[in-house]
Design a protein around this nucleic acid. Sequence first.
DNA 1: GAACAGGCAACTC
DNA 2: GAGTTGCCTGTT
Length: 273
Amino acid sequence: MAETYELTQTVKFDIVKTFECGQCFRWNADEVGVYTGVVRGVPARLWNEGRSVFIRTEPGSIGMWREYFDLERDYAGISKNFEIDEYMTECCRFGAGIRILRQEPWETLCSFIISQCNNIPRIKGIVEALCRNFGDPVVFEGSTLFAFPPAASLAALEPDELAPLRCGYRAPYIIAAARAVADGSADLEAMAKATHEDALAELKKLPGVGDKVANCIVLFGLGITSGFPVDVWMKKALSEHFETGFDPKVFGEFAGLAQQYIFYYARSTGREK
DNA sequence: GAACAGGCAACTC
DNA sequence: GAGTTGCCTGTT
């Protein structure tokens, strides 16, 4: 049975920004500011109350959640180093409260393969269909949710069997990735311990994984904080605010957080009109 | 109906 | 090695 816990009252943690900044696809708002999701098979519901974040979840899972939300890291301290100019200061201020989620590696790999050339609502729809069709049911607060299907489950399928997902040409990529992870030829745990460059190179051996997707996996799924995905939004923001030949290394080992602030600011301000 | 989308791979030169 | 094009599908 689920219990309610105060996850944090000291760490700056804005759940809406964290869940809506484009890094994850399986947290849904039941009502404004109340999000339900399943991580590593464990269901939870979160909300902000004043400066606190509350979570309703299974007893014994709080340690897992603290790691998932990266609550031990000093984001405010790290962010100070990004404030190299007025623009970056504004990005940091605007994105304050975002946590970089430490997502399950296989789920991250699979989800970002699906993300290519897709918008967030459609990505979420495909991922949800994947879980409903092939994931284990998880009962939570009277409703049935679904866990993300393990790689081994998908490895046994043929691309055709993903037809109900309507994910198009990505289906063979998903099956190939599932098989590589299931048979050990893609070792995500080992990649998480490798350097940024080595992890990227390994990921890019998988069909359907290029530089952008690999950087998303590295940052959101492998806990490599220098991951720096550059999509069309980032390209635009970087070209408008930095010299050509800009190198994200100037942001140091936590460049991925700077990336997320820039990205969130660019998307939030860029599509209002 | 055509063009395009938070990208990749295969093909061209 | 830099640039172009097709790819499933859904939306505009």
